[in-house]
Design a protein around this nucleic acid. Structure first.
Length: 673
DNA sequence: GGTTACCGGGGTTACGGT
């Protein structure tokens, strides 16, 4: 007969916490905890991406023994030769194990200061004798060590705990072996077949549909599977269902998205699969706020035909035999450019290819429509495109930048026009008025010829201008923390046009920003305004993105609040461009500020480079007449961005979105000594 | 100072959406 344990042995030694208390959130994540438990499962060491290896021990104690699911994992990251090798039923004493919430589950993880002691189950004496002799040798140096109180508690715990839920020795060994077998289950959606289970990396392409007990997702990895539903791209044909306004203009033009109905926004073709998720995954989708645009890994996704027996679907169910809650939906980090997941990277690359092809196709449709429908004089109004292929833009800008670098050391003749260089110096000049003129196409809607205003066209121009204003008002803010998009995960990520509101961008904190980019706006007026514009000079806001600004300034962006040298260089270059505009604007700002203080009206319109009536910076912060800065020739391109639009009649870029015409500067360089 | 990682096996609930 085993002697009854005495009272002292019965009590968890002070400084230790029970498994039950941990699972009941009695301690916060991040705390370092001391825990004593019995080994019920072990996943053998596997290499990690770093130099450490990783193994996992699952523990339970007598606070949680009546429920087989109440056990706690300790994740051990250490060099391979310091890995513990516990056996079934061994007692583990942990010091300073960090509590974490990983994969939506509470678990322990080793910390710098964690010590792990293992007592061999078959050597633990019956209480009240302490288990000191059962201690396995330590593979590494420790800072804490168990005393007699702990040794005695180990004996008590091992002999008194309910072991009926422990696996058999054979089962334990089997699980341990299986834990190292990693079969590649990853599949691209193009390769999924009826009846298989697969891991996939996909993007949510539609808002999750939540019925309470289940959530259905539409996902794509931008591969095609013949067994998926075919989403037809209606494209330009979609406006046949819309009505023209009394003047024969359509208010909107669908362009790469479906109008009004807000239904399918792509990808089109057989690239998307429906996935039905059940608990516990639904909870994660809600709590993480997964939504359109989120990239996720779905593990062990069951693939089979849906009820209509025509299209393959995915099913994400709970893991039946998992020893604890197992979450098979994991959000992917598209901002991790350091060590991007290769599957994610490939999927993002395919998405970019898909978007490029779609854009080219849509542009092609426009070009064909315009070539067929427009009179020649209309073409002249467009400002004679220098190139109508958006793809060439970057090449041209790179060339300009390269030339800028080449000419860096060359001497510059200091005349008004020669201090700013521009690409395409043999191309005709457009006026601001030309550039601002909307472009129409004649087309056939339900048998009627209507004149249709395009929301924007991808066209390049050259113009003689001078700068009359700029945004943001402080030069320090001309450089911003680099905004990350999902395409940044690709090593050949390209410059993107400045958008007013962009989706999928991760907000970057100024304090933690590693990379900076130029991002500012210039308001331009004609250097030699046409006669009819003399009374009310037309102006145009152009966005200057990072590449254009590098070309313009021959400077790289940095944190200008810290980098005074770069700020001063920026100020000098811009002086060559706009003379004393900054000083005058600053004086004007001061004057206005004083006036506003007096009037208690400090609200200012937001910065904006569009030509839209509602959104453009209408207020002239500086009177153009006061400006005596230098005229120069520059390249301007027109492009479109999507902006939120609550009015469904105006939402021509899909649900809640409208196309907004924008202008950007490119291929222009300030020469300097 | 505090990341790294998350086995196997064989699938019901629900009935919508393109």
């Amino acid at each position: 007969m085993a002697p009854l344990p005495n009272k002292r042995q019965n009590l968890l030694p002070s400084g230790f916490i029970s498994v039950r208390e941990i699972l009941d959130h009695k301690r916060g994540v991040g705390n370092l905890l001391n825990v004593i438990g019995v080994v019920k499962d072990f996943r053998a060491p596997v290499p990690t991406r770093r130099s450490d290896w990783k193994c996992e021990i699952r523990l339970y104690d007598n606070s949680a023994e009546d429920d087989s699911s109440n056990s706690l994992a300790i994740n051990i990251f250490r060099p391979e030769n310091e890995m513990p090798n516990p056996r079934l039923g061994d007692v583990i004493v942990l010091y300073h194990a960090k509590l974490q919430s990983h994969a939506e589950t509470l678990s322990l993880v080793t910390h710098w200061t964690t010590d792990i002691y293992i007592y061999a189950a078959n050597q633990i004496p019956r209480p009240p004798e302490g288990a000191k002799e059962a201690l396995r040798p330590q593979p590494r140096k420790t800072t804490q060590s168990p005393g007699q109180v702990v040794h005695e508690y180990v004996s008590f715990l091992y002999h008194c705990i309910d072991k009926s839920n422990l696996p058999t020795e054979a089962e334990f060994q089997d699980m341990k072996v299986k834990s190292t077998i990693v079969t590649e289950k990853f599949k691209q959606l193009k390769d999924v077949r009826d009846g298989i289970f697969a891991d996939v990396v996909v993007q949510l392409v539609k808002q999750p549909y939540d019925t309470g007990d289940k959530i259905t997702l539409w996902v794509s990895d931008f591969t095609e599977n013949d067994s998926f539903f075919h989403f037809v791209y209606t494209g330009l044909g979609a406006f046949a269902g819309q009505s023209a306004d009394p003047e024969g203009h359509l208010a909107t033009l669908p362009f790469g998205a479906d109008p009004g109905t807000g239904e399918w926004k792509g990808p089109f073709g057989k690239r998307s699969m429906q996935v039905t998720c059940f608990d516990p995954h639904t909870t994660v989708i809600r709590e993480r706020g997964l939504s359109t645009g989120s990239w996720v890994m779905l593990r062990n996704l069951q693939i089979k035909y849906g009820r209509n027996a025509a299209n393959l679907e995915g099913f994400l169910r709970e893991d039946r035999w998992a020893s604890s809650l197992k979450i098979n939906i994991v959000q992917m980090d598209v901002t991790d450019t350091e060590s991007p997941d290769p599957h994610l990277k490939e999927a993002v690359r395919r998405k970019r290819e898909y978007e490029r092809e779609k854009k080219d196709q849509v542009q092609g449709i426009f070009n064909a429509a315009m070539a067929g429908k427009k009179r020649k004089s209309d073409m002249a109004e467009m400002g004679l495109p220098l190139s109508d292929k958006p793809k060439k833009k970057n090449k041209n800008r790179s060339k300009a930048r390269k030339r800028a670098a080449e000419q860096k050391s060359s001497s510059v003749v200091s005349t008004a026009y020669s201090e700013v260089k521009c690409e395409y110096d043999n191309k005709p000049i457009s006026t601001i008025g030309d550039i601002l003129d909307p472009v129409y196409i004649q087309t056939d809607v339900n048998g009627n010829q209507v004149k249709l205003q395009l929301p924007f066209v991808n066209v390049n121009y050259r113009a003689n201008v001078r700068v009359v204003n700029f945004m943001p008002p402080d030069l320090e803010d001309f450089a911003q923390p680099k905004k990350l998009t999902e395409y940044d995960i690709l090593s050949d990520s390209e410059e993107s046009d400045i958008e007013l509101v962009s989706e999928g961008e991760a907000m970057v904190d100024r304090a933690t920003a590693r990379e900076w980019e130029w991002r500012f706006f210039l308001e331009l007026e004609d250097a030699n305004p046409p006669e009819d514009d003399r009374e009310k000079k037309k102006t145009l806001w152009v966005a200057v993105n990072n590449l254009s600004a590098q070309c313009l300034l021959s400077l790289d962006a940095s944190d200008l609040q810290q980098d005074e040298k770069n700020l001063e260089a920026l100020r000098q270059r811009l002086f060559l461009l706009w003379g004393e505009l900054e000083e005058k604007k600053s004086l004007e700002e001061d004057r206005k500020y004083q006036a506003a203080l007096a009037n208690r009206e400090l609200n200012r319109p937001p910065p904006n480079s569009s030509d839209d009536e509602s959104g453009s910076p209408q207020k002239q912060d500086v009177e153009p007449s006061q400006i005596s800065n230098r005229p120069f020739t520059c390249c301007i391109h027109q492009y479109g961005v999507q902006v939120p639009e609550e009015n469904p009649l105006k939402a021509d870029a899909g649900e809640g979105k409208r196309w907004q015409r924008m202008f950007g500067l490119f291929g222009t360089r300030i020469a300097y000594n």
